[in-house]
Amino acid sequence: MADITAAEVEHLAELARIDLTPAEVDDMTTQLVEIQHLIARVQQVATPSVPTTSHPVVMHNVMRPDVAEPPLDREAALAGAPDSDGGQFRVTSILGEEQ
């Protein structure tokens, strides 16, 4: 695998419409080559017998079964409301007269 060159960085910057100074091109090239070498090191130890993972710790999503239940009746739903009127929640207006 060949290292990334400054010309390739300049070409990608042009495609992305990013103006890079010569110093920024040099810095970016150095950083990308370092990343490229790190990826190569990881590929050396990665084996087909090791499954790919997105997280180092096995995680399980714990969910309760989805069971249909009867809905709350209106009185029970409004029981905890600070204010209600005619079977509806009553809230203060957040918009002015321009609505």
Rank of each mutant, 00 (worst) to 15 (best):
N61A: 15
T53V: 13
E98P: 06
V50H: 09
E10S: 08
L12H: 09
T92M: 08
V67E: 11
D27Q: 02
P71A: 01
D85W: 00
T53Q: 14
E8P: 01
L32Y: 00
A40F: 07
R90I: 00
H11A: 07
I18M: 08
E75H: 13
M63D: 10
P82F: 01
E24S: 03
L38Y: 12
Q43C: 13
L12F: 13
V9E: 07
H55S: 14
T29F: 05
T52Y: 12
T30P: 08
Q99I: 10
G80K: 06
E75I: 11
D3Y: 14
V57K: 10
S54R: 15
D85V: 08
R17G: 04
T21Q: 12
V62S: 13
V42M: 08
A81K: 04
V45K: 07
S54N: 09
P51W: 01
L32P: 03
S49Q: 12
T21W: 14
M63G: 11
P70H: 09
E34T: 00
E34K: 02
V42C: 06
D19K: 01
L72T: 06
G96F: 02
Q44C: 05
E14G: 00
T30F: 01
P48M: 00
Q36V: 04
L95F: 09
D27L: 03
V9Q: 03
P71H: 07
A76R: 01
E34W: 02
A68I: 12
N61S: 10
L78G: 05
D26Y: 06
V42L: 06
R74I: 14
A13S: 06
G96K: 02
A46K: 07
T5I: 06
R90N: 11
E75Q: 15
R17C: 05
E8W: 01
A23T: 14
A2P: 05
Q36K: 02
M28C: 07
M59H: 14
H37P: 13
Q36W: 02
